[in-house]
């Protein structure tokens, strides 16, 4: 397994370089360094000299990918791409174009993101599995049909509807919790209820349907028939046999997204005013802060690679037949 992990880690390097390159090209296709300077200098009275000075001060006065004027290796190294990207590989995110330390901001903002994402995933998992098992238990009945129709309806509704509906009902009409905002520390709980509830409810349709499919697949297998044949109650069949085996695909799916929980939810954080990493990324895109955008894309890529690696490892843990 060690060799496998090392091999996958080495594979990650060209992937990360590729991701960085694509991010860089996409960003600078849309925004030129001059545009970035104008965005930061304001929209009034911006002179060409001020733009040049801003670019010089922030290291955007170099060529993008290839420096014709330089010699030797500096053709490559004396460019915006190299100077802005190479330190990412030692997780030095540098400073944002507005001057703030990105690493510090990430460390600050990951906690609100986790505070929403972790309960959303755990409660969502519990709720979805419970519903899925219930529906699987009553498979073939009108309850099953109604539940599936309901799940499809819930899947079809936009996330924005859940957010605005939740804010309107729970925050505005019933006045049970603050409609948006955040406080650090113990007082954060009342700001988390609504986004977590919205996150859980919005995921019920898709999650329940997926888990139902997995359970139904398991329930049709021979070992289930054997379990029933030996006289086990349906409860034991479901919980002791079907659930355990269904957990393999469920677990591998969950492990893959666990590292990404850290990155936050773009929509939920933005609408509920949660100062997490999701809203951090959105704000950076809106303000054309390339330093933050590349840092967050890089971090997301690293976490995704870690997630996939953990998924592979988790296979070996839950299914002894798998060898890495």
């Amino acid at each position: 397994m060690i060799a496998y992990i090392i091999r996958r880690t080495l594979y990650a390097v060209p992937i990360l370089i590729g991701v960085n390159l694509i991010t860089f090209v996409l960003f600078f296709v849309v925004n030129s360094p001059d545009d970035m300077a104008r965005m930061h200098l304001g929209i009034k009275r911006v002179t060409p000299a001020a733009i040049e000075q801003w670019k010089h001060a922030h290291g955007y006065d170099k060529p993008l990918l290839w420096n014709e004027a330089a010699q030797g290796l500096e053709n490559l190294t004396n460019t915006i791409f190299y100077t802005k990207s190479v330190r990412l590989f030692v997780f030095d995110f540098g400073r944002s174009d507005a001057g703030r330390d990105i690493g510090y901001d990430i460390r600050q903002r990951m906690w609100p993101s986790l505070a929403i994402a972790v309960p959303t995933v755990l409660i969502g998992l519990l709720v979805n599995i419970t519903f899925a098992m219930l529906i699987a238990f009553f498979r073939g009945t009108s309850f099953d049909l109604s539940a599936v129709v309901l799940c499809v309806m819930m899947m079809s509704v936009s996330m924005l509807f859940y957010i605005i509906g939740g804010q309107f009902l729970i925050g505005k009409m019933f006045e049970l919790v603050p409609i948006s905002g955040y406080l650090y520390g113990i007082e954060a709980w009342k700001f988390l209820i609504l986004p977590v509830a919205v996150g859980v409810v919005s995921g019920i349709g898709m999650g329940t349907r997926w888990y139902r499919t997995i359970f139904l697949e398991e329930l049709g297998k021979d070992y289930i028939r054997t379990a029933r044949a030996k006289g086990l109650s349906e409860r034991l069949v479901l919980f002791r046999h079907a659930l355990r085996n269904a957990l393999i695909p469920i677990l591998t799916g969950i492990v893959a997204v666990l590292p990404l929980l850290f990155m936050g939810s773009l929509l939920i954080e933005s609408f509920f005013g949660i100062p997490g990493l999701g809203s951090y990324t959105i704000d950076a895109i809106n303000s054309q802060d390339f330093a933050i955008v590349r840092a967050m894309v890089f971090l997301g890529s690293v976490l995704y690679i870690i997630g996939l690696l953990l998924t592979d490892i988790s296979y070996t843990l839950v299914d002894p037949r798998v060898r890495l």
């Binding site: 605005i164 804010q167 309107f168 925050g171 505005k172 006045e175 603050p178 409609i179 948006s180 905002g181 933005s270 609408f271 509920f272 005013g273 100062p275 809203s279």
Partner: peptide
């Protein structure tokens, strides 16, 4: 000063006296 990016929460909190 609280960061309030969306108009709906801003307006609702104003009506609630916040």
């Amino acid at each position: 000063f609280s960061l309030e990016k969306e108009a709906i929460p801003y307006w609702t909190k104003f009506l609630q006296g916040y």
